[in-house]
Design a protein around this nucleic acid. Structure first.
Lengths: 341, 341
DNA sequence: TGAAGGTTCGCAATCGATTGCGGTCTCTTG
DNA sequence: CAAGAGACCGCAATCGATTGCGAACCTTCA
């Protein structure tokens, strides 16, 4: 049994396919007599007609599909973002085509080409890194693009992100307030502006109190647990007195840091306070629960989807960059620390 | 500047579009003289030609797109599954169109219709529940469908899942081995066969040792933290001596149970041992680290994608149901318990 | 009654790529 | 040199829905 097409519906309703097309589209329904609309609708119903979005897409030049590019689907912070996007799309007849780059430039290129070939109406990129500008801008000539989470300052590509400068400052303030003086940070990948901003916000705030942030001479390749572990070991191996507080640039790295501390016989809140970033769900349940900086991932996804939709509807470049505020969530990993005195 | 189409490429290469089409397709390249292929390729390169997957999809009746339906993108167990699917698809020119049902039957219906309208080549459903059979089977007449994670026994729909009966037995054995006698379980949603199997596997194994599983007269609405909390409270409020060990049907519910225990002044490994399910990444870092049953989520995603691809290529119904083995991962939440004696 | 104006609807082209069929050209062989 | 065999390639139809244009029809009012 071949597919039921518009032609079949039209035949059954005794009208021309073009009329059936108009009758079935709520936006153009007024171009057709009410009684005809009913007849067509009934015919469609009886035949179980299901429009062909592919054919429609070809003719209209619009697929009602958004591309979503993420760096790492395994990163727990990404889940709420994708969720926010998906929830914003559903109900609008839009769907998300997802792809993973694994932080690989070549893959980013391939993925964008693939999405362009599929004629998606817009693309949301959550995994941009320095070095992706060229391919992104090339793709942008064909499709509206919105960056989410990670942004590329100076690229001119609209971005919905969070204020990581401020996030870094919040972390610094929190540690200062609790009396820390020897304070370190474990930096995320240096080719992602967000991590650079976390670093500079943190560093800057400390400096305002005349304190120099302790850092190791390396940054994480990727913001994952193993790298947090490695950097923490480097830090502890450095000369000089070890820090009493550490800011890890995300929660996964914070776990890695905890591991490394444990291996060296140091316990977390007591010897060294640790603060993470992202407020990944698990941080509330770990041992100890980790103080972290909460970002509005779900909201961020929704907003990114919203601006992507705006961009694809009229080609308005009105929206540029938006930065959502982070919030510090204090937990035992810092609150449990006591000045040795 | 309008889009570059195949016609443009053909014109530049001085051939007919049909020839250009053949030249550009590796599978049909042999139908064209080598030198012509080079000329067409060069023309395409120079013009920056990018095929139109929509038009191609219409003509070929194949979109190279798979639908992926999940219940809850926020469930941490889903991430590796989606990742496995995505990784299997990438490199084959396939992409995933994802949708969320939030465990809602009506939404499942809508989503499947939407995917059918988009002419996806196959659908992977990870969030099926009892009651979804009808809409699934209807969709199945148009598109190959594979169930993943959750399955629907007796529905005849191919499924890649894990052996939850065995998972339940593993949990039971582990607790028995550690000397527990008063053993309870907190059951997940009763309209998902996987949870029923966990329950019966657990129950059955205990019975083989003459022990009756302690249960409350309710199951979780959804397998989430709050429901684990609620059921644990119900359990503690029941008459009779409280259990010394609890099997929560997934890790999130296990956390909820821990919360509830804490609120009543009981501590986890010491007073009550707790075992979860799924081996969500965080379980290794919680306080205490939670014993859990590990499922091969990533592998499962890969295999589901693989069978979906098989199904869409030849319409072979060869593959039916596959069940991957779970493994028990012992951690402190059960190992730390000591028999009161 | 007839012209003007508005409603409905059908015709055919179109979106861009693919493909069955058949024509042309080249080369080989008897 | 003729005929047969391939190798290449072009023509035109096709996938299914949408839309500009204009024809047909109906209403209204002079």
């Amino acid at each position: 049994m071949p597919n039921i097409t518009l032609k079949d519906v039209a035949a059954r309703a005794g009208v021309h396919p073009s009329t059936a097309s108009r009758a079935l589209d709520p936006d153009r329904g007024s171009l057709v007599r009410e009684e005809t609309v009913r007849r067509v609708r009934a015919a469609a119903e009886e035949l179980g007609y299901q429009g062909d979005a592919v054919a429609s897409g070809l003719r209209r030049g619009r697929t009602n599909t958004l591309g979503v590019v993420v760096a790492d689907l395994g990163n727990p912070f990404i889940a709420p973002v994708v969720r926010g996007i998906e929830n914003h799309l559903e109900g609008r007849g839009l769907m998300a085509l997802i792809a993973e780059t694994r932080d690989d430039h070549a893959r980013m290129d391939r993925v964008l080409n693939n999405l362009a070939a599929r004629r998606v109406d817009a693309v949301i990129v959550t995994g941009a890194r320095d070095g992706d500008e060229r391919v992104l801008r090339r793709a942008q000539q064909r499709i509206p693009i919105v960056l989410a989470v990670r942004h590329l300052p100076g690229s001119g590509i609209p971005a919905i992100t969070h204020d990581d400068q401020r996030g870094g400052r919040l972390a610094a303030e929190h540690l200062l307030e609790h009396g820390h003086v020897r304070i370190a940070q474990l930096c995320g990948p240096s080719d992602v502006s967000n991590f650079r901003e976390r670093a500079s916000g943190f560093r800057g705030r400390l400096k305002e109190f005349g304190i120099e942030a302790i850092e190791v001479d390396d940054t994480a390749e990727r913001p994952v647990l193993a790298e947090g572990h490695r950097l923490m070991e480097l830090l502890l191996a450095q000369h000089g007195e070890p820090p009493t507080a550490v800011f890890a640039h995300n929660d996964l790295m914070a776990f890695g840091a905890l591991e490394a501390l444990g291996n060296q016989g140091r316990t977390c809140p007591k010897d060294v306070a640790v603060i993470g970033y992202n407020d990944t769900p698990m941080t509330a349940f770990t041992n100890p629960p980790i103080t972290t900086v909460r970002l509005p991932g779900y909201e961020l996804g929704r907003m990114a989807a919203d601006t992507a939709v705006m961009l694809m509807e009229d080609h308005a470049q009105a929206v540029t960059t938006l930065s959502l505020p982070p919030v510090l969530v204090p937990r035992h990993s810092t609150l449990g620390w006591r000045r040795a005195q």
